[in-house]
Design a protein around this nucleic acid. Structure first.
Lengths: 191, 191
DNA sequence: CCACCTCCGTACGCCACCGTATGGTTTTCC
DNA sequence: GGAAAACCATACGGTGGCGTACGGAGGTGG
């Protein structure tokens, strides 16, 4: 892939692992294929990492870190709660399945069983749900109602991503998508 | 597993494959492990099937068949549309991730990329969405609104299943679940 | 009863990947 | 400028799966 540098760092390996993760899921985070894509050999890898699991662990940690940063920067531009929700849903439901971030997301969901994936996923999920609950509470819904609405919103997001990936023709695009997002927000915020 | 019969049929292999699918996903539909679980060897398998792919194909076909039957029998006991929706959602959201049917469902979603899985999944999804749309239309919503609501309902179901599997603690149970189902229905059928 | 067809066990070669061993090549730093 | 440390290539053995070859068992009909 990159022919420039000769000597690699652990970070080079983790970011290559993240790329592989996006493209082929957990199974693609494999030492020898990634070595080939980096134009090197396992000899390099096993100097920087003890084993494959450590690489996966590093990749997941990196993903979790940048992922939360993304959400924060996305959110902190919109003070109005209702518009913030709209923006959130537009990005969440509109993001096809092509972007690497979405692909990784799906790859991790697909491997939620994995002992390293499960806790990372749990943390991210929990943070998102808490945040959503907070938004709905800010819109004036009582706590438990806010929680239910956020759960509905989040599961709808998850399912939407899944559906867009598995059965893209079942999911609206363009103007239809915009109308859908509006309808969903109307439904989610209906008293 | 079964020590009784000596000679096996193709059906024996298919149902063993479905069991493996439920327990370990697509990757577990592997000839040698299943042979071992059946107490036999590959010699048997390659008499009944040309290769691994054919086994997977047979398993998927069988799943798709029984799956549609299940839905039909579930539905045709409740004439009232609103109660039918309630029943549907209760079963769909309440079904933990323990039942084999749910596990297979998730395993297939996790492998939606797979060339054999994708079309099967697309057919099932499309049928379900059409059915849901029909229910909402029957409740008096105009066609495109009914479609949007059914999409929201179905994505919520998909995401819920995913969440219940990956992050069970994020999902309500017992009385909370019942309350959640009621709230979701109220939200989904709100004008 | 025996020949044939059905079914299965075993052994083999192949591939992809993991992890180790070992020696060589760069840097770095005194 | 040379020793020590950092880094990498290569070769090896191990595991687990796929698919083939082939020989034998066991039912079944003539």
């Amino acid at each position: 892939m990159v022919a420039g540098r000769k000597r690699l760092t652990a970070r080079d390996w983790t970011s290559a692992a993240i790329t592989a993760l996006a493209e082929g899921g957990i199974a693609a985070v494999a030492v020898e294929p990634i070595a080939a894509s980096l134009g090197t050999t396992k000899g390099s890898f096993y100097w920087h990492f003890p084993n494959r699991e450590a690489l996966l662990e590093a990749a997941l940690a990196e993903w979790e870190r940048t992922r939360t940063e993304d959400v924060i920067t996305l959110v902190e531009g919109e003070p109005d709660l209702r518009r913030r929700l709209h923006k959130l849903l537009t990005v969440a439901l509109g993001a096809g399945t092509e972007r690497p971030a979405e692909r990784i997301e799906l790859a991790l969901q697909a491997n939620a069983d994995h002992p390293l994936v499960a806790p990372a996923l749990a943390r991210v999920t929990s943070r998102r749900l808490d945040y959503l609950t907070q938004v709905f509470a800010g819109l004036g819904f009582p706590p438990d109602d806010a929680r239910r609405r956020s759960l509905l919103a989040y599961t709808a997001y998850l399912g939407h991503a899944q559906l867009a990936h598995a059965t893209p023709q079942a999911v609206p695009t363009g103007d239809e998508l915009a109308a859908y997002v509006d309808a969903v927000i109307a439904t989610l915020t209906a008293r």
